[in-house]
Design a protein around this nucleic acid. Structure first.
Ligand code: ZN
Ligand code: ZN
Ligand code: ZN
Ligand code: ZN
Lengths: 153, 153
DNA sequence: GTGACATTGAGACTCAGTCTCAGTCTCAAC
DNA sequence: GTTGAGACTGAGACTGAGTCTCAATGTCAC
């Protein structure tokens, strides 16, 4: 937890920037609570917590945290970005439920190896891999089955 | 090529819709030329070709074509959607060059099998899989190496 | 303290995409 | 061939995520 503060501080120092109060508030809020969140989620959360930070500063801080690899950006085609802690197990993939929007995760080392190999074959120098599975989560499938059973009954 | 027209026409008929002139123009333009394109690309192309179609209609037609599985939507985190013909080899992955924005493709059946398996393990009912590799393409890597060699010389 | 420069929040702005609406077209029923 | 239900269209208003601007403020090295 204090780990991120240190990494961020070092990164800032290296770029002649300062760990200001708003930046620290954003940092602590992110690493104290959320998992997969959007900029808007974060802004609302900060407001509710009585430590509002302006939209501009939140976006600027998110960019900084992505640059120093504390956060990872994700896009599920919703026209907005999701963020998550980069510290968690690396290179995991995501399951996105098109019904309820829930995001879950999986990890498979074979997948990573395979992707690395493919990139090399194509003469591509990869920085990161993205695997997303879209569909319906177990809960939504169950709900739908129940509803169908009822309507047929 | 006539194939898409037929599929689209059938889909429209099934939903009590008509294959109107603007829709046909859009359809023929898409399947006559482009590969990976954005809505904006398409609108500009239609304008230049002397067969302008309004933004609203283009977006509406793109939605229809996606619904009947003639087009696939892609998101590379650029805040806009890319489209491509769905008829091409299915379930291929994409390599996106962060330097020049070029999009290339690859196909690996092992990858597809693996994803299917993972989804089932998680109790997930998958509709489609997305694999994207971000990094630097061969050209951009070569360019960068050349520039580096020069600056060191 | 002073000057160079980093930082901030408010709000203007951008840009992809959606929505509204009035006018037009299609087609089947009469 | 007239009519009415409802599909279709383009212009442009609108939305919403994200970026940019700018004047006021903070930080630090000297
Ligand atoms: Zn769900
Ligand atoms: Zn995750
Ligand atoms: Zn490139
Ligand atoms: Zn493709």
């Amino acid at each position: 937890m204090g780990d991120e503060v240190q990494i961020f501080e070092e990164y800032l120092k290296k770029h002649a920037l300062h760990l200001t109060a708003p930046r620290e508030t954003v940092l602590r809020t992110i690493f104290g609570t959320h998992e997969h969140f959007t900029a808007d989620d974060l802004i609302a959360h900060l407001g509710r917590a009585g430590t509002p930070v302006s939209k501009a500063t939140v976006y600027r801080t998110l960019a900084l945290l992505s640059e120093c690899n504390l956060l990872i950006e994700h896009d599920f085609g919703q026209g907005k970005k999701y963020y998550e802690h980069a510290s968690e197990l690396q290179h995991h993939g995501h399951l996105y439920c098109s019904d309820c929007g829930r995001i879950s995760e999986f990890y498979d080392p074979k997948l990573n190896g395979l992707q690395e190999k493919i990139a090399r074959q194509e003469g591509f120098d990869p920085t990161h891999f993205v695997v997303k599975i879209y569909g319906r989560c177990a809960d939504c499938t169950a709900k739908r089955n129940r509803r169908e059973a009822e309507s047929t009954a």
